[in-house]
């Protein structure tokens, strides 16, 4: 399919680690991302949700070629993404950009913001005449709602929302086709979050970039994403349209995740409290990685790893949600009680 901009196939990133115990510690493998498949069409926004440590950010790094995958591959517009940070990698930055969680950290505190917004032109368009660079930087500032008189300000003089606008303007300077947003609003307070998200939606309507939108905040993902992928312990557990995933979650983990999101209307909500902590990614449980915390786990879940089954735009990796006929149905909530 030609309109697939980005595709990840069996993408995995493992880190060799040493278990505690100093020199005597046993070497082990931390599976940050373990076999992830997804496609991203041109102009599509794919939301990536999951709790911290589930491999969201590692996935972003793999997509951008910051770290080489241990296995599997990422293809951008049909070609593998280089990971060596040489000229090819640098040239590709014209087409894929990133927005960071901490805008103050992502900006050089010694340069006025207009210089930083115009920096992509300095890097990628050395032939562009200086006045044109200045003009385009000014236009970018206006497009993200920064006042012209703020051009000479330094990052520390701006508010958090304004800084994130600077980062967004810089990322969009060269009209990238793909934007990877790693928790772009989680460092901002709620009212500013809304502003920045609205700005991003507007810019998306105008420029039509595709985005990998990473967040642990379901509301934010729901507002921004065309499609949602839920990750748990380095694997995709569920995928689908935001409304489907958030209204009729199939996977028990997603059910718990959705039930934990506060809503203003449902007062007596049926919150599913998961027992225990997310397991250590060094020591992933056998079978379904979620089974020790799953309220509905059955014997099969302990021994057999569920594969991600796709059906009509949805996908889920859960034995209980996959019926024999291939149809997907929500996993029953309290099977455990029945079994016990």
């Amino acid at each position: 399919m030609s309109d697939v901009l980005l595709s990840a196939r069996a993408l995995a990133r493992h880190y060799p680690v040493r278990l505690p115990g100093g020199l005597l510690g046993r070497p082990a493998t931390l599976k940050a991302v373990d076999g992830v498949d997804f496609d991203l069409a041109r102009g599509e926004v794919l939301g990536l949700v999951g709790e911290s440590g589930c491999g969201k950010s590692t996935t972003a790094k793999l997509v951008l070629g910051h770290v080489p995958p241990s296995s599997g591959e990422v293809r951008f517009d049909g070609a593998p993404v280089p990971t060596d940070r040489r000229a090819d990698w640098r040239r590709l930055r014209r087409r894929m950009q990133m927005i960071y969680q901490d805008p103050l950290g992502a900006l050089d505190r010694r340069l006025p913001i207009v210089a930083q917004i115009g920096e992509p032109f300095d890097i990628h368009c050395p032939d562009m005449p200086r006045p044109e660079r200045r003009e385009r930087a000014a236009a970018l500032m206006a497009s993200v709602g920064l006042r012209p008189d703020q051009a000479g300000s330094y990052p520390h003089e701006l508010s958090g929302g304004q800084r994130q606008r600077v980062v967004i303007a810089r990322a969009l300077a060269l009209d990238p086709e793909l934007l990877v947003c790693d928790e772009p609003v989680s460092a901002l307070d709620v009212s500013i979050q809304a502003q920045v998200l609205n700005l991003m939606s507007d810019l998306r309507d105008r420029t039509g970039f595709a985005a990998l939108f990473i967040s642990h905040d379901l509301k934010v993902v729901r507002q921004m994403a065309d499609r949602v992928v839920v990750m748990y312990l380095g694997r995709i557990v569920e995928e689908g349209l935001p409304d489907q995933v958030f209204h009729a979650p199939l996977h028990p983990y997603t059910q718990a995740l959705v039930s934990a999101a506060p809503t203003p209307h449902r007062r007596a909500r049926n919150r599913i409290v998961l027992p225990g902590d997310p397991p250590n990614p060094v020591d992933v449980p056998s079978g379904c990685p979620f089974h020790p915390r799953c309220p509905a786990a059955v014997a099969r879940c302990r021994s057999e790893v569920p594969s991600l089954v796709r059906d009509a735009g949805r996908a889920v990796a859960c034995h209980l949600a996959q019926s024999a006929g291939g149809d997907l149905s929500p996993a029953p909530r309290a099977l455990k009680a029945k079994v016990a």
């Binding site: 951008l64 940070r85 040239r91 930055r93 990133m98 950290g105 900006l107 890097i123």
Partner: peptide, 22 residues
């Protein structure tokens, strides 16, 4: 490791630019 140099690198800047200008 701090954001700013990594961010400029992500913009596609050459090492000489990262080290010399930032």
């Amino acid at each position: 490791d701090q954001g700013y140099a990594a961010a400029v690198r992500d913009l596609g800047a050459s090492p000489s630019r990262i080290y010399g200008l930032h």
